[in-house]
Design a protein around this nucleic acid. Structure first.
Lengths: 343, 343
DNA sequence: CTGAAAGCGCTTACAG
DNA sequence: CTGAAAGCGCTTACAG
């Protein structure tokens, strides 16, 4: 393994100069730079990252904080984020935090331990960021939740427009003639407390607003069930909802995992999708394209969310730049699980 | 942030002694050790890992090499491996390699770059290990493929007994009365070339052996289709197989993703599962418990695979120990997709 | 534009 | 059993 010493010797200059070339400092003559770069290439030299980190007392790594486990959607984003980081020649470590924990507080600990040069949050709550983000001193990106309202200099976000997408789903269901629509939401309890601050709950809010705009009644106590973001959660919540509110003709599940559980629950009650019950999911995980019937869903653009998130972070690590908050376009996938109601 | 200097000052000894305490060396008096440990605890001191790595010219990290992307099964194992590593207070970076690449050669590069103290391979081929593993100088674990035949000192493996599980599936199908059984295999071409060396191809081999043992004919050219490990791959392969061999009453897909694609293909041809066609998958991914019909499958114990893999690696990093090769028990899940053939 | 030198926080022979 | 000291490979004021 060549060290900076070898490169200095071979290119006939000091290690200080080699270091300046490596770090792209401006104050190196063009000729020296070229000579050093040639030697670096020829020796296939890689700076020792431990030494760099030590010297700069910062790690060269990026930390990824993932909220929740077993979440197919986030797993898919995570994989893409990691590949993108890898393709940029960077490296990352991953921390998983439970939904019940405070992910930003965890990140603050991570800072101490790993001293990452940047943070990527996969999922998160605005509340945690409001309380804890000021403690985080490095560029960060939040993926899948919009952090624009916080206005932090160091925090970009890339997300799907949950309100808009929720409304889109409702329009699609209304267009098919549904008037009695139920919603399987996430952790939110079944009550109408005005616009939520962040996250998947906004899908519910967007959906309900759209219904009311169209003059269709929606009663949280009757038409809504909260549940964990899992097939198991969807299954149980669908059972409760069907029991309580048998006249529904269509259901919007705010994640595909919930929808898949719900579909199974319908089946176990003898309800056929979409003949007896229409169903729309959210996320666009791979499986929705192969299940029977194919699930109508909101396809989030995980590839773009991951790529823009990583690239924005890397740019902001290297250069002073304002944080950005971008909504990444989604796509409604029609599937086979949404049809006109029979009754 | 406290450094080793602070600890030395506060406990009234030299940094060398503190270092010895940190690294659990034997040659420290019990009293000094206790005093230093108290200060460390009180200061909540964490040794700077960059400095340690630099000094030992080794990284304190573990590298995880994942073969293939978009693989739900490996994603699930990966998540569990990472959580287990995290729970042990260690940290890991992840590299993804394409199925077509040589994963062990990639690992050799990783060694150069990250100098990990250990490697975990998720998926892999014996051939790559045979050629390249001698270059890897750190303890390693291969998860999901048995590396016992190689006999390397530095390489443990934890896997499901693919041959046995494949045979188990066939017995279950034979017990139901199936005699015309097709197989959707992995990358292997459709030919009978004797016992494969490793990996999922062994599921096919175990299955076919079991059929022949039971006097049931299996003709690779007629009853077998290879395909990528994806729903898309399963869909296409199922179409080809049904076209060519319409008299099959049951199909064994060697991964759940393949099975899910196949199920959709049956549906699109008007075949109902299990009335017109029985289907068994492999892996036991979450979705199989909720699809309609529930997929009969081999449930691999991802939790144990991950946990044993990580713990074996950490033990072998810290202490001289022989590598082990362990088969982790699987479970056959009956599901609803396997029934007696009607014809 | 470039070099010599200090120092990041540790580990580990060496000497006692 | 313990301390003083060298050195891991780099970055960055400082001086010229």
């Amino acid at each position: 393994m060549a060290t900076i010493q070898d490169i200095a010797r071979l290119s006939g200059c000091s290690i200080g100069t080699v270091s300046r070339v490596i770090n792209n400092r401006a104050d190196v003559s063009e000729e020296t730079r070229r000579r050093v770069e040639a030697v670096i290439r020829q020796q296939n030299y890689q700076p020792n990252s431990n030494a760099r980190m030590l010297r700069r007392s910062i790690s060269s790594e990026i930390s990824i904080i993932v909220r929740g486990t077993g979440n197919t959607f986030l797993q898919s984003v995570l994989e893409k984020v990691q590949i993108c980081i890898q393709e940029h020649g960077e490296s990352a470590n991953v921390q998983f935090v439970r939904e019940t924990e405070d992910e930003v507080a965890t990140a603050a600990q991570t800072m101490q331990l790993f001293k990452p040069k940047g943070l990527i949050f996969l999922g998160g709550s605005i509340q945690s960021f409001r309380n804890e983000f000021p403690k985080i001193g490095v560029p960060s990106v939040l993926i899948s939740v919009d952090a624009g309202q916080l206005g932090y200099d160091g925090l970009s976000s890339f997300s799907t427009d949950d309100v808009d997408a929720g409304a889109f789903v409702m329009r699609a269901m209304l267009d098919q003639g549904h008037r009695r629509i139920g919603i399987l939401g996430g952790y939110r309890e079944n009550s109408d407390e005005g616009r939520p601050e962040d996250g998947p709950a906004l899908r519910v809010w967007g959906a309900v607003e759209e219904l009311r705009k169209s003059g269709v009644a929606f009663d949280y106590a009757r038409d809504y069930e909260g549940c964990p973001f899992s097939a198991e959660g969807g299954y149980r919540a669908a059972e409760r909802l069907l029991e309580r509110t048998p006249d529904l003709t269509g259901i919007f599940a705010i994640s595909d995992a919930i929808a898949i559980g719900a579909m199974r629950a319908f089946n176990d009650r003898g309800l056929r999708v979409p003949d007896d019950m229409s169903l729309v999911g959210f996320d666009g995980v791979a499986y929705t394209r192969y299940c029977v019937p194919r699930l109508a869903t909101i396809q989030q653009d995980t590839e773009t969310l991951a790529q823009k998130g990583v690239e924005d972070l890397l740019m902001r690590i290297s250069y002073e730049r304002p944080a950005v908050h971008e909504k990444i376009p989604y796509q409604f996938v029609n599937g086979e699980s949404l049809a006109r109601p029979r009754k």
